[in-house]
Amino acid sequence: MFSPHTINAEHRDLIHDVAFDHYGCRMATCSSDQCVKVWDKANCGSEWVQTALWKAHSGSVWKVTWAHPEFGQVLATCSFDRTVAVWEEIVSETISIGAAGMRHWVKRTNLVDSRTSVTDVKFAPKTLGLMLATCSIDGIIRIYEAPDVMNLSQWTLQHEVVFKLQCSCISWNPEFSRAQIPMLAVGSDDMSSSASNKIAILFFNEFVRKWVKLDNFSGVSDAVHDIAFAPRLGRSYDLMAVASKDVRIFTLTQIIKKNFRDALGGLRYEVHLAACFDDHNSSVWRVSWNVVGNILASSGDDGCVRMWRGKYL
């Protein structure tokens, strides 16, 4: 019987999200107790030590996410209090003893455009620069950019896309080259709506400089709790996992039609349902890929974490 390592998080309420940084050496947790905690792997060993704790919002903190380290040690959080906050770790001016007291997190900005609870926040792949995508209960997806990467307190709202349904989760497609078209997948856990599709896939259209919805996709009609693109790592297509009443995996293949010029520049995506697992037998809450993107971990209401690996015949 395998017993996993246990870390006592000591949050005063339910933990909503855990995020690792780019190197897997730091971890951030956020909770309904309105606090964010940062954990460091002591000397990159196996012990995780809490190095920071602060009250980040005046409501439950739903999600926390790390920026690529080339932008510094930067976190973004979103909360029920309708705001998104960007945090940076800095070295304090005041002299204090011990290495832990030397660094602390400061709020660099508060993005207050949403009128409702912000349910997810994600940094874009680093090739796009310092960008953030957020989604909220009122069904609006907002994309922010920090034009000057040295100034984290200035963010401009670049785009607002209306999804209509209350959003629950958002995911960028992984970076792979500068030529890659940025894509976002948004899920909705709207129970009241009878809309047949709870997922929108948006991609950035260079010609009109707008985010456009992929129209030929109709995948999931049940409430979607989480959505995750797999890391690409050499693969020729994209993989997207969806946590709904079951685990679903979609493949997105880009088809470029030559000599076919329209608003999308001849770009088409073919979306296929590659797999569907109902082993959780209940709602699935979260999905996460491994670094290569060939194994998926999912968690569900049955209290289990399950792992799925692609099998090729």
Binding site: I7, V18, H22, Y23, W285, S288
Partner: peptide, 21 residues
């Protein structure tokens, strides 16, 4: 709700109950 994450360095973390990772 179990939230989980898989790091670049092959650490898989998930929440257990309210307070444990």
């Amino acid at each position: 709700r179990i939230t989980l994450n898989w790091s670049q360095t092959s650490h898989l973390v998930w929440t257990h109950g309210q307070n444990t990772l």
